[in-house]
Each structure stands twice: as C-alpha cells, then as structure tokens.
Design a protein around this nucleic acid. Structure first.
Lengths: 146, 146
DNA sequence: GGCGATCAGATCGCGGGCGAGCTAAACGTG
DNA sequence: CACGTTTAGCTCGCCCGCGATCTGATCGCC
C-alpha cells in the first residue's frame, strides 16, 4: 500500500491543464489576426455549425454558463460578428445569429485546424485516440460531479 | 480534397478545453474544503515536492508567468500557507517556502488523486496513455510556438 | 569603476470561468 | 383568473491567464 503520488508531473489533471493552455496559446496569435479570443472562436464554431441558436443551447454545447457567455456575446455583438434578439414567441429566450461579417470570418478560420493539427505532432491514430479519451474523461467526470 | 472540419465536436482543442474545465470543476468542491483554488493547489504540489523554490522555478514548473503567479502567491501568503522572502545573495529573486500550516495541508491533499482517479473512469492503461499523449502534445505545441 | 544589457519580479488592464443573487417571462395548478 | 414555481438570461465579485510596462538588482564589458 504505497502513498498516492502528489508529484506534479504524475497528475493527469496537470497534464490536462498544461496541454489546454499550450494549445490555446498556440491559437492566440492566429486568432488575434481575426480579432477573436479562443472562447469567442469556439462560440463561432458552434454558431457556424448550427446557424442561429439561443444562448441556452450555446451554453449546453460549450459547457459554459451565462456568467461567461453573456459578456462574451456582448463583445461579439459589439464587434459586429453576431446579433442578439429576444424571441417573439418566448421573450425569455435570446436568439444569437451570425452576421454577414461573422459568416465571412468562417472562410479565414478554415486554415486553423490544419495548422494546429500540424503543430500537435501526433499521428492520426494518436489524434483520434486522444480525442476519444478526452471525451470519455469529460463525460465520466461530469457524471461523478452530480 | 475535403474541406477541413470546423465542427466543434471534431476539434481536439475543444475536447481539451472541455475536459480541462470538467476536471477542475470536479476538484473545486473538494479544494474548497481546503480553502484552495485549483491553480493554488498546483503551486502547492510543486512546493511540497521541491521544498522551497524561487518564483521563477515555480513558473517554469507550472508554465505560468509572473502576472499570474505574483498575485496568486500573495494570496497564498495571506492565507498563511506560504512565506515569500528576497534572497540575501540575489535580491532580485524571491524564495517561496511552505509554512507549517501549508505542510499540514499536504496530508489532507493525499486523498485527492485517488478520488479524481476514480471519477475519471479510465483503465490504468488508458490513464497512462492519456497522460503521455498530453505530454507529447504539450511539448510539440510549445516547440511550434517559438 | 561606469554603463548598457539582462534578469527577477511586480503591477495593470482585459477577457475569460464561475458561483451567487437578481429580474422578468412563461407555466401549472387551484 | 391568481399565485407559486420554473426557466432564460443578466450582473457582480473573485480568481485566474497573459501581454505590456515598470522597477531594481546583477552581470558584462570597456
């Protein structure tokens, strides 16, 4: 019965934290040219994919709450990339729509995934493996958080 | 030649971002009981392991800059877990030392890795695989950021 | 010894994340 | 219809992360 390790480099949680920040750090200079931050980019990914969608659904897709999304969306709106309007049929809900300008950004964003893919230095198999392990981890941890 | 995917769920970067936040979210209630935030916990991990160490080395171990570490260490000091003192032999450098109280926290922290390990729901092999993929990813991305 | 370069660290500003507390709209049940 | 409950969203405060800028201390080199 050995004592559990508290070595920093043994912790998957630290590896995760470091990797996540390294990747967003890699995106930063590229996204700067598009005038976006990393979370803003993720929001646009969700919107490009789904067309318009209410704030609630964005939160579900990105696992972010209103405290994060509300100010972020306001900044995207101020930048002219997004519109926010109350639904007529349910005044509680706010529908977020991509503007022309926001849609145009999508073309320039297409170069991002290949660039990051190359920088990651993983084989295709490792890439898929990593993604599926991360998904499994996320859902499992979420279940244990209830 | 297909267009690169911009689907949110295809992006490893998003899987990473979501997993990292899910894990720190899982730690939060447990660390709350110790009066710690997640980055503070990581700093203590590094200090428990190395004994005292200058701010610069902490930054290297955690990949964090002074803008993050300086205020964080001040908060840890105010909480009585850590001491900060200028070195006599090099007045530029600040040595960070764990106090008795900080050292005592280590015992209570020993229960964390098993708990998170269980919540992750990964086999031992997957666990090691994930960690090594994350490390590989981190170093590779860091190299491509120069 | 003097002086520019480098280095350790602090500070500030901004944009996340997130919990807590708030408003207003819609719903549900009598 | 009235009234409590749920729901969507906002705001605020605190703590990261990080770029930029500042201060002092040390080093290198003449």
């Amino acid at each position: 019965m050995t004592e559990p390790s508290l070595r920093l480099d043994d912790q998957v949680c630290f590896a995760l934290y470091a990797a996540s920040r390294a990747v967003t750090g890699f995106y930063r200079p590229v996204l700067d040219k598009l005038g976006l931050t990393y979370p803003q980019y993720l929001v646009l990914l969700a919107l490009w994919e789904n067309g318009a969608c209410p704030v609630k659904d964005l939160g579900a897709a990105l696992q972010l709450d209103y405290g994060t999304l509300s100010p972020l969306l306001k900044r995207l709106e101020k930048a002219g990339l997004v519109r926010r309007e109350r639904r007529r049929d349910d005044e509680r809900s706010v529908l977020v729509t991509v503007t022309e300008e926001g849609a145009a950004l999508r073309e320039r964003a297409l170069e991002l995934p290949p660039a990051i893919g190359a920088a990651m230095g993983l084989e295709d198999a490792e890439f898929d493996q990593l993604r599926s392990l991360l998904r499994k981890l996320t859902t499992s941890v979420a279940e244990h958080s209830g």
